Amino acid sequence: MTMKKLFFVLAFLISHNIFCNPTVPLPVISEFFYNEGNWQIELYFSWEWHGKYGIQGFEDLQLVCNSGEALFIDGLKFQWDSIIVIDQTMLASAFFINPDEDNISVKFSDGSGGWHWICEGIEYGPEPNLYNTTGPKPEQSICMQYFYINGFPYSYRKMKQSPPTIGSDPFNVSSRTSFSGFVFDQNMQPVEGTKFVYCEETLCYGNTVPAYACFETDANGYFETDGLFSNWHFFELTKDGYVFMEDIVFMEPDSVYYKEYYLTGVGVKTVNLMKDIEVVTAPNPFSHKTTFHISIPQELDWSEARITIFNMKGQEIDFIPIVGNPWAGGKVILDWVPGNANNIGPGLYLYTMELDGKLIKSEKLIINE
């Protein structure tokens, strides 16, 4: 498999899987706004964090970015399940945020001198991907958008928001992007019924709140939507169960995008092994060890599999082989200890599962100190 193809497949698997496993409770940072050297961060502490980590107030927390960390000043009012907007005046030391590239998060104290990430923070930089967006432009902010299915919390993603909504409506992005264009075949004829697939079908056509726009071409090969969130999108152009093209588009908020696609190749039949294989990682986040619980249907024959760990630059840092298993299907339990691998410190990582050379699953791993 070429590196380009591996990147596309990995991106598509991650873009599907980011919504597959419930992620509760809510993230802590709901919005970040930077304006000419001044910044504001909207925090929201769900009550679940109290039971999970025993957080009592700001004295148990610190704000962290790439340049360092800062404690909060004494006497700050702390509230559960409420919006708290912070800025530099509420920190005990200078906190330098890079407007072009940074990773802002919150850590909690374990009471014994150790500090650990509560959950994923706001990360952005010059090269956007599924987990990171670009730095906020003037009058833009970066928000965490939370998704619900049938009234239950499901997952979240980073989105761009314009104008900022610091101090109100947490985890809800109002900005959308318009995307339109045409799809033609190799004879320059319009292709009707081409679907732009970039999330699970249950999200596109299910009961997701807010709605996740899905769209396809009409009889003239034309497609149009004004409901795309402002972020990084990986599209598969599919028709009648075949994938004809893949594309990645990054969209800024309240913008209009137009593109024409020309399907010149033969489609590849879609095979969704993700529906057949389950991988659960627990605990996650973790500090010393996590366990992969893998369930493979009995009817799915296989002989070799592996778990591979990547950093956020896409570099392989460790792998766990499953070689020469003589039976078909069943359950596999694998422990992973980060300390056994080189160059692994606290932070955000990805793992993939491959089965007989096919990329099956990809998910996030969060390692605390």
Results as ranks from 00 to 15, higher is better:
Tyr34Phe: 15
Ser178Glu: 13
Lys107Tyr: 05
Phe319Asn: 07
Tyr222Trp: 02
Val191Met: 15
Phe33Arg: 02
Ile84His: 02
Glu201Pro: 01
Trp327Lys: 04
Phe234Val: 15
Pro338Tyr: 09
Met1Val: 12
Val323Met: 13
Phe33Thr: 03
Asn284Gly: 13
Arg306Val: 07
Cys143Met: 13
Leu365Tyr: 06
Gly221Arg: 03
Phe182Arg: 15
Asp60Ala: 09
Phe250Gln: 05
Thr208Asn: 08
Asp87Cys: 12
Trp336Pro: 02
Phe78Glu: 12
Asp81Ala: 02
Asp185Met: 11
Glu224Asp: 11
Phe12Met: 05
Gly241Phe: 13
Lys358Trp: 08
Gly329Leu: 13
Glu59Met: 07
Thr165Trp: 00
Phe7Ala: 01
Tyr257Arg: 08
Met90Val: 04
Glu201Asp: 06
Asp247Gln: 07
Gly241Tyr: 09
Asp218Val: 05
Glu101Phe: 04
Pro99His: 04
Ala211Arg: 15
Glu101Ile: 03
Thr281Leu: 15
Asp254Thr: 09
Pro163Glu: 00
Phe45Gly: 01
Leu350Lys: 08
Ile360Asn: 01
Tyr146Asn: 08
Ile294Tyr: 08
Ala213His: 10
Ser30Asn: 00
Cys204Glu: 06
Phe147Ile: 04
Ser180Phe: 08
Phe19Gly: 15
Asn340Asp: 14
Tyr131Gly: 04
Phe152Ser: 07
Gly314Leu: 14
Glu127Trp: 03
Arg157Pro: 00
Asn207Phe: 08
Met144Asp: 01
Val266Cys: 09
Asp185Arg: 12
Glu236Thr: 05
Ser174Ile: 06
Cys143Thr: 11
Leu273Gly: 09
Pro163Gln: 00
Pro164Glu: 05
Cys199Val: 08
Pro210Asn: 10
Thr238Met: 09
Thr202Trp: 13
Ile18Trp: 05
Met312Leu: 14
Trp49Asp: 03
Asp60Glu: 10
Met1Asp: 12
Lys160Ala: 14
Ile344Cys: 04
Lys4Thr: 14
Asn220Ile: 07
Ala94Asp: 08
His288Glu: 15
Lys358Leu: 13
Asn340Gln: 13
Ser112Tyr: 10
Ser141Gly: 09
Trp336Glu: 06
Ile84Leu: 15
Tyr34Trp: 15
Phe78Ser: 12
Thr177Tyr: 03
Thr2Trp: 01
Phe235Val: 14
Ser255Val: 08
Lys5Ser: 13
Glu299Ser: 15
Glu278Val: 14
Val332Asn: 04
Pro285Gln: 05
Thr291Gly: 05
Asn98Ser: 08
Ala341Leu: 07
Ser30Ala: 11
Asn231Tyr: 05
Lys275Gln: 13
Lys160His: 15
Ser155Phe: 14
Phe78Val: 13
Asp226Met: 12
Asn98Tyr: 00
Ile277Pro: 01
Tyr351Ile: 10
Gly206Ala: 12
Gly125Trp: 01
Gly37Asn: 06
